[in-house]
C-alpha cells in the first residue's frame, strides 16, 4: 500500500511531503506513487521525501517511476529526497544516474 505521512510545515517554501514507496513501485500499479507525488507538487510541496524503508529491491519499472517523480519535481522546482535507501539500491541509482538528481539521506 501507498502510505502517506505528510507532516507539512506551515512555511510554504519548505513544505515537505513524505511518500512511502512500498513494494508496489515495481509494478505498473506503482504509477500511482508518481500521481500522488504530482498532486503534492501541485499543492505547493517543495520537498518530496520518498521513504524506501518498506522497499526491498527496486527493478526497472521502479526506476522508471522514480525517474518520473524526479522529472515532475524538476518541473515544479521542487527537491527530491530519497530516505532509508538500501545499499544495493543506492549503487543501482548511482549507476543509472538517479543520484545526480536527488539528495540521499
Amino acid at each position: 500500500m501507498i502510505r502517506e505521512t505528510s507532516p507539512e510545515t506551515n512555511d510554504d517554501a519548505t513544505a515537505t511531503a513524505v511518500i512511502t514507496a512500498g513494494d508496489y513501485l515495481n509494478k505498473l500499479a506503482g504509477e500511482s506513487i508518481e500521481r500522488l507525488c504530482r498532486e503534492k507538487l501541485d499543492s505547493g510541496v517543495k520537498r518530496l521525501v520518498v521513504d524506501f524503508s518498506e522497499t526491498e529491491i527496486i527493478n526497472s519499472i521502479g526506476v522508471s517511476i522514480l525517474l518520473d517523480v524526479i522529472d515532475s519535481a524538476k518541473k515544479h522546482d521542487a527537491k527530491v529526497v530519497f530516505a532509508e535507501l538500501r545499499e544495493d539500491s543506492r549503487e543501482l541509482f548511482d549507476m543509472l544516474g538517479l543520484t545526480k538528481h536527488v539528495t540521499i539521506v
Binding site: L28, I61, S64, D71, M95, L96
Partner: peptide
Amino acid sequence: QETIRTSLHLVSGALGIMR
C-alpha cells in the same frame, strides 16, 4: 495497453532514461 506501458517503463528503467 498495460503491456505497452510496462514495456516503456522496463526500457526506461533498464538504462535510466528520463523520458
